[in-house]
């Protein structure tokens, strides 16, 4: 069984007494432990609804969602599921609650009843992992958006989560903050082998993942490596999505008769192909 196993998952909610809307429509998806998966899709395609199933904020209307072998519908699994999967949302100001950075990071383990010297070491470790050690005594409102998101990530790490689900974590950040957050996530994935589910509208960020899942109308419609997904420029456009700039330019150059490999996604790859 895979680490995350979603089988025939449907989620519907009522938009009026007589009408239901299917936000997720028979979704099947497996994610192995240690994978880095980007999820793309236009607003309203079901990305966030799917993410909220991964730590049982939402429960399936039908079908199932299993995390580390635990069925999220079983109430006895709830706390273990939440501890296994940490969520980071778009707005950093909505998820930081304490008046000091290290108190905020300690909030999770405190609620788990972890002994206090163990909390101390977990908090130090988590802040170190996101590069925020020197800010441990800061008030969160004095931090930049990127730093706040890194504190939010540290808060999930202190719970010893195995999987990090990030729902557009960079949408409200400036370019520097965006890079900080993406670099932190990549580093955690590389160094600690944490499983990452990363929802974004930035195609360049998705290109950093090992695997890209595209959603449309509550269904998974594409699933492949960034190279496999982003070489189909026309198909992505039709879905209202984009591709990384290098992929788009390579596609335009090929149309002009310039011979280039089909799988260019990064600036680096385009430079190598054009100037080898």
């Amino acid at each position: 069984m895979s680490f995350i196993e979603i089988k025939d998952l449907c989620y519907s909610y009522s938009i009026s007494p007589s009408e239901n809307r299917m936000a997720l429509n028979h979704v099947n998806l497996s994610v192995e432990e240690g994978e880095f998966v980007a999820v793309l899709g236009v607003n309203g395609s079901g990305k966030s609804t799917l993410a909220k199933h991964l730590n049982a904020i939402l429960l399936p209307t039908s079908g199932s969602c299993c995390v580390a072998g635990m069925d999220t519908r079983k109430p006895e699994h709830l706390w273990d599921v939440r501890q296994t999967v940490g969520m980071v949302f778009q707005n950093p100001d909505n998820q930081i609650i304490a008046a000091i950075v290290e108190d905020d990071v300690a909030f999770g383990p405190e609620n788990l009843g972890v002994p206090s010297d163990e909390i101390r070491s977990r908090v130090d470790e988590a802040l170190k992992a996101v590069g925020m050690t020197e800010f441990h005594g800061f008030a969160p409102h004095l931090l930049s958006g990127g730093q706040k998101q890194r504190v939010a990530i540290a808060g999930t790490l202190a719970m010893r989560t195995k999987c990090l689900v990030l729902d557009e974590p960079t949408a409200m950040l400036d370019p520097v903050g965006r890079k900080e957050v993406l670099d932190t996530v990549r580093c955690l994935h590389r160094e600690s082998g944490i499983t990452v589910i990363y929802i974004t509208h930035f195609m360049e960020e998705a290109a950093a993942a090992q695997r890209v899942v595209v959603m449309e109308d509550g269904k998974v419609v594409e699933d492949g490596s960034p190279k496999e997904i982003f070489c189909h420029v026309d198909a992505m456009r039709k879905r209202g999505l984009d591709v990384p700039l290098a992929a788009e330019i390579a596609w335009r150059l090929r149309k002009q008769g310039i011979r280039l490999p089909e799988d260019i996604v990064t600036d680096e790859e385009l430079a190598v192909a054009l100037c080898r």
């Binding site: 700039l245 290098a246 335009r252 600036d267 190598v272 100037c275």
Partner: peptide, 24 residues
């Protein structure tokens, strides 16, 4: 950024393009 990367790699390209179409 992309065009200046290409320039560094040795392609004598003008860098003042702001859309994918112009850059291509």
């Amino acid at each position: 950024a992309l065009l200046s990367r290409l320039r560094d790699a040795g392609l004598a390209v003008e860098e003042d393009a702001f859309t994918a179409d112009e850059a291509a």
